Amino acid sequence: MTIISLLLLASLLPHLTFTAHVNVGIVNGKEAKPHSRPYMVSIQEKNKHICGGFIISDRFVMTAAHCRNKVLTVVLGAHNLQNKKENPVRIKVESYYSHPQYTSEFFHNDILLLRLEKNAQLNNKIKLISIPAKEGDIEADSVCSIAGWGLLETNGSQSNHLMETNVKVMNNKECERKWGEEEFSASLMMCVYGEGGSCDGDSGGPLVCGNTAVGVTSFGDPEICNSPDLPEVYTKISAYLPWIKSITGNGSSAIADEMKFF
């Protein structure tokens, strides 16, 4: 869920006192080519989409910690969530691994690993995405992309089709100036900006630079999706590599052999 309405937050997630808006949909984006992002996952509660996620191994999905609920399932290989003829794969979550220092007050360490009940069978519609092999920052103004099934505009309707848009990485100092030191941590987070952005329902989806997932959609402006004043914030995956490997083992085959950082 990238930027969720407060009402939706109250109904889907534990009560959050932080002023930031957690995310759920793509604003000013376009429909993705069907199955062009085969790593994308719809995280659902009672067969309803609540968050995005992405496959980092045949047994683990990565998403945002604020997406955690008692009973979740993941849907793999989907494009149109209402089209049963696509034959998407639904797998129950066996175990939940929130980062031990996750705090819902400021969304620090907003990262969650879902261990699936069984291995995902990889094919043309279900594939892994690489995560960084080492810690580092992506160069400011790098063009990356986001995708999700969230709201198409603030308080608008949710998209059944996977939507996508390009964004640019923001300078950490600029993001810190906009959000403040208490809410934004340059060592753990990164910001993006652009004509398009996330909205309610996109939380947990990946920020993709090149062919690598470098961030997890976390939070944004509490009042408006794709705010011109408060950039969207992503959990920086490279800051959590030791923890990720401690959960997944030597890692997923999706961990990139080499990723250029600046």
Results as ranks from 00 to 15, higher is better:
residue 3 I to M: 07
residue 10 A to M: 03
residue 12 L to F: 05
residue 13 L to Q: 01
residue 16 L to I: 15
residue 18 F to G: 08
residue 24 V to W: 13
residue 25 G to E: 02
residue 51 C to V: 15
residue 52 G to T: 07
residue 54 F to V: 08
residue 63 T to H: 10
residue 65 A to S: 13
residue 68 R to W: 04
residue 70 K to M: 07
residue 72 L to D: 10
residue 74 V to S: 04
residue 75 V to N: 05
residue 90 R to C: 11
residue 91 I to W: 01
residue 98 S to M: 13
residue 103 T to A: 12
residue 106 F to Q: 05
residue 106 F to P: 01
residue 112 L to M: 03
residue 116 L to Y: 15
residue 123 N to T: 10
residue 123 N to L: 08
residue 126 I to L: 07
residue 127 K to H: 07
residue 133 A to N: 14
residue 136 G to C: 06
residue 140 A to E: 09
residue 145 S to G: 15
residue 154 T to P: 09
residue 155 N to P: 06
residue 171 N to L: 00
residue 171 N to W: 00
residue 177 R to W: 10
residue 177 R to K: 14
residue 179 W to C: 14
residue 180 G to W: 12
residue 180 G to D: 14
residue 183 E to P: 01
residue 183 E to R: 11
residue 184 F to Q: 00
residue 186 A to V: 14
residue 188 L to N: 12
residue 191 C to P: 00
residue 193 Y to A: 01
residue 195 E to S: 05
residue 200 D to V: 01
residue 201 G to K: 02
residue 209 C to E: 03
residue 210 G to N: 05
residue 215 G to E: 03
residue 220 G to M: 06
residue 220 G to W: 06
residue 223 E to K: 01
residue 225 C to S: 08
residue 227 S to N: 12
residue 228 P to L: 10
residue 235 T to W: 01
residue 238 S to T: 02
residue 250 N to R: 04
residue 251 G to H: 03
residue 254 A to R: 11
residue 258 E to C: 10
residue 260 K to C: 10
